[in-house]
Simulated scan of single mutants.
Amino acid sequence: MKNTEVLEERITAQGCTEHLSAVEDAIYVIGGKWKLKIIIVLQENGNIRFNELQRNIPGISARVLSNELKDLELNGFVKRVVHAEQTPVVVEYISTDYSRTLQPVIMALSNWGKTHKRNIREDAF
Rank of each mutant, 00 (worst) to 15 (best):
S66Q: 14
S21C: 10
H83P: 00
L53N: 01
S110W: 05
T96H: 07
V90A: 05
R121Q: 11
V91R: 05
H116C: 07
T17I: 06
H19M: 15
L65M: 05
I106D: 03
A26Y: 04
K35V: 04
A124H: 11
E8S: 12
V64T: 15
E18Q: 11
H116Y: 13
L102I: 07
K37G: 06
I11S: 03
G46S: 06
N119C: 13
I60P: 01
Q86H: 08
M107S: 13
A108C: 09
V64A: 14
N56C: 13
I30T: 10
K117A: 09
N56W: 02
Q103H: 07
G31P: 01
S110L: 05
R80A: 09
G76V: 07
V64K: 09
K70V: 15
A108T: 11
L74A: 14
K37M: 05
V91N: 03
I106L: 10
E5G: 08
S21V: 07
G32V: 08
D123K: 12
Q14H: 12
I120G: 02
L69M: 10
I40C: 02
A22K: 14
I94C: 09
E8K: 13
L7A: 14
E122W: 13
D25C: 05
E8D: 11
K2V: 14
I60C: 03
L102A: 06
V23Y: 03
G15K: 06
I30E: 04
P104T: 03
I106K: 00
L53T: 02
S21L: 12
L53W: 05
V23F: 06
I106V: 15
L53K: 03
